[in-house]
Amino acid sequence: MNIPLNIDWRQILLHLFNFAILAGGLYILLYRPVKNFMKQREDYYQGLRDDAEQVKEQAEQLKTQYETQLSQADEAIDRKKAEAEQELEQLRERELADAQRRAGVILEKARENAEREHQEMLSKATRELTQLAVTTAEKMVLNAKGDPYEQFLDLAEKEDAHEQSE
């Protein structure tokens, strides 16, 4: 059978045989080794990446742990601060009450002292006035002519006359 275009089955098979050798040889000599190497490199970098991911994950866990601890520490600090403020308030109130009490005592003492001094001053003034009156009287007596009683009466009369004239 004469096939057009000079198609020859034997030569097709020879081409196939030739291509089979070429494809097989290229697969064994080039394709597989290069692909294996690329796979090996990919595995190597994948391993590095996995390690990095693992380390990152551990770091994340540590970070979370530290953040928890930090928040707990913050809470403890807040709690301690509140307690300290409460204690300080109580202490301040106690001190204030104590100061007020002491101020009351001091004020009472001052009042008592003032009263006592007032009384002393009054008594002293009374004494001095009495003394002055006595002294004046003595001086009047000593400087008077005649009987004191008479002088007194004269003075009294003078006073009456003076009032009546007015």
Binding site: Q11, H15, L22, L29
Partner: peptide, 21 residues
Amino acid sequence: PVNPGLISAVTVTAVLLAAAL
């Protein structure tokens, strides 16, 4: 006797396999 294309194919195969080796 074969077509020249077959000789070319064999030559190309030989060169490529030698280079690959």
